[in-house]
Nucleic acid binder design. Structure first.
Lengths: 338, 338
DNA sequence: CCATCAATATAAAACGTTTTACATGATAAA
DNA sequence: TTTATCATGTAAAACGTTTTATATTGATGG
């Protein structure tokens, strides 16, 4: 009585095909020096017995499990899934599977997950952050040579690569767009300053103004929270300025939705009176009236890149480069700008 | 030169502790008949060598990999993540890991993933749907006794359990709440009829009216799409009725947000003039003005249940019951009802 | 006709565990 | 004292593959 699902082994195939297990193995791995006659018989037997090789046993010899571990901070975070999709896609395209682990941001839980992943002999690990406030350190556990990449997360770990969005470029892109459509007084509603991202987005905004020879007016830059309410409040505030803005660039879609609400409330037309650009490209942005132009985070692409970085290290055996990879944001044009 | 991460094996531990590998194994598995002296020496050696058992090798003998496979239709679906969190949590609590696979709803891709999962000797599989329109069939592949559970997905497969939300109960709950706060003419804005869920939610609504001896008025029930725009349009329409509703129950939060928009536009106060209840408990519902009362889908709980069902079958070896598990929805009270 | 070589096939060892079967010595029961 | 029982320990087989080393065959070339 076998316990595993695949009761039929390479022995059974060998027996039916009238060859040795070694020969079956060769056929299965496209190794040379097997006659087309034998190959045919083996393939037939595989078909007839519905044989499925036991990858677990295989990896015992090969030392590769074709398995990745993904530990996320915040599995329900709004940005997490797109990145996970990218990772999963990159992995499965190359025949790798990925273990999903959720740490809730708890370092002890992360350690436990790492322990299990290493026990399960994963070939590589991705540490994915859902919000990316401040840089983090390397995991407090000996990884024994298993490569790691950080995704959406700055790190002090100088041995591993790091994949993040190009927030500076994103800030630049949104501002540049508003300038190009002729806006002169562009406000910037930022998120909390304890997020690394907010500084880079603001820098991008300033650089775009500079490049266009537009003045930087500190009164037009406000710091709030990430959510709708904050956008609403700050916009009401902006509208009391002696010369109010003719465009608002928000550091998140939620802020932009709040801003839109405030603008509607005072009877201003979007995009004509005030043009509006969001950031993140989350789903609700597309369903506003008018639908919001926004700077998209390249989450899926980041996931793909993180996966590919890891896989290339694994399959080529090349040493891991501890580079910082900034993936470009892109602009999604909708009807809140014109 | 070893290829795997854990270069140190049970042999090394045995040697250092001055015992046989068999004894080390016993210690590691809390087996009886080992002296506390030997146990101590082994534990010391484990500590000193930073030994981490190779789970892969272990599962070769045990026939259990402590691994689950999760295949989802739609990894980016709004409901998917909460369920995945539940599954992951249930699994990791019992020492299981879960492989994440994304099929994009493509049956061929699903087949490939199943093939890989079975090769990797998973102990069980969860098939998770992101949207759950119509019942699906069993996977077109011999599972060889590996148990399956369907999550958020009706199925024709009569051999496996199925975990879904209790939409009828949810429809009842929302309606009952509106009745309890004294509303008499309660409209129901439904989603597309090709979703199973819409029928059950409507049935719940009708039953609640019936139980309260309130008349059912077909003019108050409208069918649209799931999104904001649809809610907006249908609400405008409802407001042209000779006696307009004093409450609107929407089959999704998005619909409710659209409805809220329409109500604001004509100057009606929510919750006083018209009370409003959504469905799904998605994040934006909490950020409306006023924040929306809504019927929550028990997604996390469903994930937990699916995981536990599968795990209990795996660890106890009990036969799989092909039951339909309806997990109760619950009401989230916010300020759109009073 | 013999030596060499390549192609094909296989037996056996290995991967890192667990488990089975057996050996030893000590203790309890008769 | 003898016997049965039990706790402790280990050698070796097993899990399902891959890989290494070796054997067999047939062909090639001198």
């Amino acid at each position: 009585m076998r316990k595993t699902s695949s009761a039929v082994t390479i022995r059974d195939v060998a027996q039916l095909a009238g060859v040795s297990p070694a020969t079956v193995s060769k056929v299965l791995n496209d190794a040379p020096h097997v006659s087309s006659d034998a190959r045919g018989r083996v393939l037939d037997a595989v078909e007839k017995l519905q044989f499925r090789p036991n990858t677990i046993a295989r990896s015992m010899k090969k030392g590769r499990t074709h398995t990745l571990g993904l530990i996320t901070d915040d599995i329900e975070g709004v940005f997490t899934m797109s990145m996970m999709r990218g990772v999963e896609e990159a992995a499965s395209k190359q025949g790798f599977s990925v273990f999903l682990c959720n740490s809730y941001g708890d370092m002890e839980r992360e350690r436990e997950h790492l322990d299990v992943l290493l026990s399960k002999q994963v070939d590589g690990i991705i540490l994915l952050s859902g919000y990316r406030v401040r840089p983090r350190g390397a995991p407090a556990i000996r990884l024994g040579g298993v490569p790691v990449v950080y995704l959406y997360q700055y790190t002090h770990d100088t041995t591993a690569p790091c994949v993040i969005p190009d927030d500076f470029g994103g800030g630049y892109l949104g501002t540049q767009h508003l300038i190009e459509i002729g806006r002169q007084r562009i406000a910037f509603l930022n998120g909390p300053t304890d997020y690394e991202a907010t500084h880079h987005r603001l820098d991008g905004y300033r650089q775009a103004l500079l490049d266009a020879n537009l003045p930087f007016d500190p009164a037009l830059v406000q710091v709030g929270k990430w959510h709708e309410d904050s956008g609403y409040q700050l916009t009401r505030q902006l509208l009391t300025l002696p010369t109010p803005p003719d465009a608002i660039f928000c550091a998140s879609d939620s802020i932009a939705i709040g801003a839109l609400d405030a603008l509607h409330e005072v009877g201003l037309n979007v995009p004509n009176d005030v043009s509006l650009v969001g950031f993140d490209n989350r789903v609700p942005a597309a369903y506003q009236r008018p639908p919001l132009t926004t700077v998209a985070l390249p989450l899926y692409e980041m996931g793909i890149l993180a996966g590919e970085l890891l896989l290339s290290v694994i399959v080529t055996g090349a040493p891991l480069q501890a580079e910082l990879h900034k993936v470009p944001c892109y602009l999604i044009l909708r009807e809140s700008t014109a």
